[in-house]
């Protein structure tokens, strides 16, 4: 009883973590591509509509989607691609730098050309993912074609 009270008195009040990531191991640039396509379509809808409330909502949603593009690209860059992939795909760091910068640009832009450029860069990331064996390594097999 006394010992329990002493232990309770000395026990830490807060907990600090020293954790590692626990990745599911599923990576696919398609996630970034779909969010970037959303940005593209929203910009089209924004340009075709004069309603102020609609346009405000469109800008807000586009900014959310562009942020998700950055997130999905960051996950690919940090977690999927490994140092040895730099030998397979030259300019990988620069490609991600350009793609994430372009996602930031699309977040603030209503120019369809900016959204198209982002799609093109994500397609280059997709090519790098495929060149490094991404589909076989990271996706669950057995999906109907």
């Amino acid at each position: 009883m006394f010992l329990t009270a002493v232990v309770r008195l000395l026990a830490p009040r807060t907990v600090a973590r020293a954790h590692c990531d626990l990745p599911c191991g599923v990576y696919d640039p398609e996630q970034a591509r779909i969010e970037a396509e959303s940005c593209y379509k929203i910009i089209e809808k924004y340009a075709a509509n004069d309603d102020a409330a609609f346009r405000t909502r469109a800008l807000h949603i586009k900014e959310e989607r562009a942020e998700l593009v950055k997130h999905h690209l960051d996950v690919l860059w940090h977690d999927y691609f490994k140092p040895e992939h730099l030998d397979t795909v030259s300019g990988l760091h620069d490609l991600f730098w350009q793609a994430t910068k372009q996602a930031s640009k699309v977040k603030a832009s209503t120019d369809l050309a900016d959204a198209q450029k982002l799609l093109d860069l994500i397609d280059q990331v997709d090519a790098a993912w495929k060149a490094t064996g991404g589909p076989g390594k990271t996706r669950v097999a057995g999906r109907p074609g």
Binding site: A18, H19, C20, D21, L22, P23, H78, D79
Partner: peptide, 22 residues
């Protein structure tokens, strides 16, 4: 930074350490 390298955490079945590299 974490003390463990990415190779060590991978060998233990975890992902990369979550630290300033992240």
């Amino acid at each position: 930074l974490a003390d463990a390298s990415e190779a060590v955490t991978a060998a233990a079945g975890h992902g990369p350490p979550i630290d300033s590299r992240r």
